[in-house]
């Protein structure tokens, strides 16, 4: 403190004189009624935090515990046992992709040829081929079936083969294809792309997969970075706008960013209780 005073380049006497004269201005003290009021408030607020439980709280708490326990037990009792659980293979995500694949036999042949080195039979059955097509059309849907049953063995899951049966005549397929082509949406294109990626994954093209996944990760990270700039200067102009901005960040799921903003806010406005 005294070093700082010297470093201010004041002449020490004058600075001391100003301080001494200021001290003589008056030694006002905080009024006692204010002191009492603030201390009472502090005491009441402090006690409120540690209030003992009200008499009615205990039975209510017990009732809540028992009720919740019963609800959990009943819910567990209603759950089906593993023996009775039917494994349901989810339907393909995109029927149009399946239809297109059915119409474009050479395409599916190509996929089948690509899958052949992985240990498939040299003569894939029509069902197996359609199975591949179904997988390529809906990787997310086909994945459980792939995990649950090994296609190289004869114990292939029946539902998949059933789905792959050419139950509809070609002219009907064509009609469906035309109708669904008219209803073609961008999501379908995405699904097709996913299917292609999945086929590549299955064919062992790991490097390409890695590049795809890393590209996706990079792009999503870039999107997150672009979408998470935090609160700008305008939002930080006042407490309320800043708090609003933090609330928006929290609602958007950017908790880390919101926490950083909250810490910065607390540094600027330490009196705010943001808890």
């Amino acid at each position: 403190m005294s070093n700082e005073r010297e470093s201010l380049d004041f002449s020490g006497d004058s600075d001391e004189r100003v301080s001494a004269t200021y001290r003589e201005l008056g030694d006002e003290r905080a009024p006692e009624h204010l002191n009492q009021r603030i201390l009472q408030r502090a005491a009441s607020t402090g006690q409120r935090r540690y209030l003992p439980a009200a008499p009615w709280m205990r039975p209510v708490a017990w009732a809540a515990v028992i009720g919740l326990s019963l609800a959990i037990v009943l819910e567990i009792a209603r759950l089906p046992t593993p023996e009775t659980t039917a494994i349901e293979v989810p339907a393909p995500l995109n029927r149009s992709a399946t239809t297109e694949a059915r119409q474009a036999e050479p395409e599916s042949d190509k996929f089948a040829d690509e899958l052949a080195p992985m240990g498939r039979d040299s003569e894939p059955t029509p069902g197996a081929r359609a199975d591949v097509v179904d997988e390529s059309a809906a990787p997310a849907a086909a994945l459980p079936a792939t995990v649950s049953g090994d296609r190289q063995q004869d114990s292939a899951p029946k539902p998949i083969e059933r789905m792959a049966e050419p139950a509809t005549p070609p002219d009907r397929n064509a009609a469906i294809g035309e109708r669904e082509a008219a209803e073609f949406r961008p999501q379908d294109l995405d699904a097709l792309r996913q299917a292609e990626d999945f086929a590549r994954i299955r064919s062992g093209d790991n490097e390409e997969t890695d590049s795809i996944s890393s590209r996706a990760a990079r792009s999503s990270a870039a999107m997150l970075d672009a979408a998470a700039p935090g609160c700008d200067q305008e939002a930080r102009a006042s407490r309320s706008t800043w708090l609003d901005c933090i609330a928006e960040l929290e609602q958007a799921g950017l908790t880390d960013l919101a926490r950083n903003e909250r810490e910065t806010l607390l540094e600027v406005y330490p009196e705010i209780d943001t808890q």
Partner: peptide, 22 residues
């Protein structure tokens, strides 16, 4: 005081109240 000790707040308050008031 944060942990519920009101006497601590009173000490803290008496230490700073007059200077803050001035």
């Amino acid at each position: 005081y944060r942990d519920g000790d009101n006497a601590a707040f009173e000490t803290l308050y008496r230490r700073h109240n007059d200077a803050l008031y001035r």
